[in-house]
């Protein structure tokens, strides 16, 4: 006859971890942020550098995908022209829920130095943005920090309900 008393509130050495569904789901979501390959201009070079060996996005579980249907994070890296605006919207709509957007660099945030007829003055005129990264272009460290902030944001959210509709701008 076993003399053990099982304390159900502690793991007692058993391979059991107690947690909530929210935490598990958000842990999974925040640590496997698959990003859409979306370099539009010179910020795309910094984004590629973040993904490459020196900065290594794979450590965060951020793996670049070439298809919007496999991606949940869109890093808008570069200048968005008015000609391209409809396509960014179409790609955003094709991404699976839940989805997040990082606007990377001055051009994506506000149009930046391109205060002209052909540039969208901030991607938030077209798609809802979760995080704005300043810089021209932001260094890979900035993008890493941005992804980590986004991970924090995801962990704060409730996982069980559908995402709240985001304001366009």
């Amino acid at each position: 006859m076993a003399q053990h008393q099982v304390n159900y509130l502690k793991d007692g050495g058993l391979p059991v971890a107690l947690t909530t569904i929210d935490k598990v789901v958000n842990w999974g979501r925040s640590n496997s942020l698959w990003a859409l390959t979306y370099g539009l201009a010179c910020c795309g070079i910094e984004m590629m550098a973040s993904g490459a060996s020196r900065y290594d996005f794979d450590r965060f579980g951020t793996i670049f995908r070439a298809s919007p249907r496999q991606a949940e994070l869109m890093v808008v890296a570069g200048t968005l022209t008015k000609k391209h605006a409809e396509f960014i919207r179409r790609l955003y709509d094709q991404m699976t829920e839940p989805k997040w957007v990082i606007s990377m660099g001055s051009c994506a945030n506000t149009g930046g130095m391109f205060n002209t007829y052909a540039t969208v003055q901030g991607v938030d005129r077209v798609i809802p943005v979760d995080l704005y990264l300043p810089g021209c272009a932001p260094r890979p460290e900035t993008l890493q920090y941005g992804v980590m902030l986004l991970q924090q944001k995801i962990r704060r959210e409730s996982a069980s309900r559908a995402q709240k509709p985001k304001r366009l701008m």
Binding site: A85, E86, G111, R125, M169
Partner: peptide
């Protein structure tokens, strides 16, 4: 100035999205 808004959301979205901010 309204090209992308008109094309993606339609003219009725102009009021929601608002004019471009041209002061960098």
């Amino acid at each position: 100035s309204w090209y992308e808004v008109d094309k993606i959301f339609g003219k009725e979205a102009r009021e929601i999205i608002g004019p471009e901010n041209r002061d960098p």
